[in-house]
C-alpha cells in the first residue's frame, strides 16, 4: 500500500522478511486511501501527478464519492474545487504527457490544454516539448497554430507535426534547442498564414534594398493589418540629423520605397525583383 520503493530495495538486498505495518480488517477502503495518501503527503511535497493520484484515490473510495474537504486539507492536498478538478485529470493523461509534467518540460497549464486533445496529438505535443524544453508562451503558440492548421486542412495535429520539414528541424544535429524552437515556430506560422508570411518576406526584401542603415528604421503596419508605416530616426548630434534628412529625401524618391508603400494590397509580391 505504501513503501513500494522500500520493499523493492529490501528485495534487491536479499532480505527475506521485513517489519511491516499491517492495516487489519475491518479498515474501510477509504481508511486505506487516507493512510496511503497521508504516508506520502505528510512526509514530503507531492509532485503534480502524485497530487492528482491522491485526489483520485480519495474520490474513488470516499463514502458518497466525495471526500470531506477537511480530509483533503488535513492531508495537505489542495481543496479549491476548480484546481482539484483540473489536477485530477493529470493522472488520466497519456504516460508521455505525465512524464513531461514530471520532468517539468510541460507546465500544469499547458498539460491541461493538451490533455483535452486526442491521445495522439497530446502525446506528439508532449514529445515535442520534451525535446525543445521551451517556455509556456511558445508552447501555447505552437499548439494553437498547429491545431488551427489541422482544423483548416482537415487533418490530425500529429500529421502536421510529422511533416518532413518539421521532422527535419526536430532531428537537425546542427541546431540547438533554442534554434529548433525558433525554426519550428517559423515553420508553423508560415504554414498557418502563408499569404501573410510571404508578404512579410517580400516586405523585408524590399526594405533591405533601401539600405536604410542603423539610424533609420522602417516598421511595417502592425501585424500587417493597417496601412500606416512607422519611420524611426536615431541620432545624437546635429550632423546626424542633417544626414538623416538627406537620407529621407533620397528615400522619398526611391522607387522601392514607393513600391513598398503601395504594394501591401498584393502582399508586396512582384516588387522584389532586383
Amino acid at each position: 500500500m505504501s513503501g513500494f520503493r522500500r520493499v523493492d530495495a529490501c528485495r534487491r538486498l536479499g532480505w527475506e522478511a521485513v517489519p511491516a505495518r499491517v492495516l487489519e480488517a475491518p479498515a474501510t477502503m477509504y481508511a486505506c486511501a487516507l493512510k496511503s495518501v497521508g504516508e506520502n503527503s505528510l512526509e514530503r511535497p507531492l509532485n503534480l501527478i502524485e497530487t492528482s493520484r491522491a485526489l483520485r484515490l480519495l474520490d474513488r473510495h470516499a463514502p458518497g464519492g466525495t471526500p470531506p474537504p477537511e480530509d483533503a486539507s488535513a492531508l495537505g492536498l489542495p481543496t479549491h474545487a476548480g484546481l482539484t478538478a483540473r489536477l485530477k485529470t493529470l493522472c488520466r493523461m497519456p504516460e508521455e504527457v505525465q512524464a513531461a509534467v514530471l520532468d517539468e518540460t510541460l507546465s500544469f497549464a499547458m498539460a491541461c490544454e493538451i490533455g483535452q486533445l486526442e491521445e495522439g496529438p497530446a502525446v506528439a505535443f508532449a514529445r515535442l516539448f520534451r525535446r525543445l524544453k521551451t517556455g509556456l508562451n511558445k508552447q501555447r503558440e505552437i499548439v494553437t497554430l498547429v491545431s488551427e492548421i489541422a482544423c483548416r486542412d482537415g487533418i490530425d495535429s500529429t500529421a502536421v507535426l510529422s511533416e518532413p520539414e518539421m521532422i527535419r528541424v526536430q532531428d537537425a544535429e546542427d541546431l540547438d534547442r533554442s534554434q529548433k524552437t525558433q525554426s519550428i515556430r517559423r515553420l508553423v506560422r508560415r504554414r498557418r498564414f502563408p499569404v501573410l508570411t510571404a508578404a512579410e518576406d517580400h516586405f523585408h526584401a524590399l526594405r533591405r534594398r533601401l539600405k536604410l542603415g542603423a539610424n533609420l528604421q522602417l516598421a511595417p503596419p502592425r501585424d500587417f493589418e493597417g496601412t500606416r508605416y512607422t519611420l524611426t530616426l536615431s541620432f545624437e548630434r546635429l550632423e546626424e540629423v542633417e544626414r538623416l534628412r538627406a537620407q529621407l529625401d533620397a528615400l522619398v524618391r526611391h522607387p522601392d520605397f514607393k513600391a513598398l508603400l503601395t504594394g501591401k494590397g498584393r502582399g508586396f509580391a512582384g516588387t522584389t525583383d532586383p
Binding site: 527475506e16 521485513v18 511491516a20 505495518r21 479498515a27 474501510t28 481508511a31 487516507l34 470516499a62
Partner: peptide
C-alpha cells in the same frame, strides 16, 4: 474523517517479502 473505521491503526509484524 468520516467515521471510526477511517482511523484504523496498523499493527506491526514481521512478514516475508515474498
Amino acid at each position: 474523517m468520516g467515521f471510526d473505521g477511517d482511523r484504523a491503526e496498523p499493527c506491526t509484524r514481521c512478514i516475508l517479502l515474498a
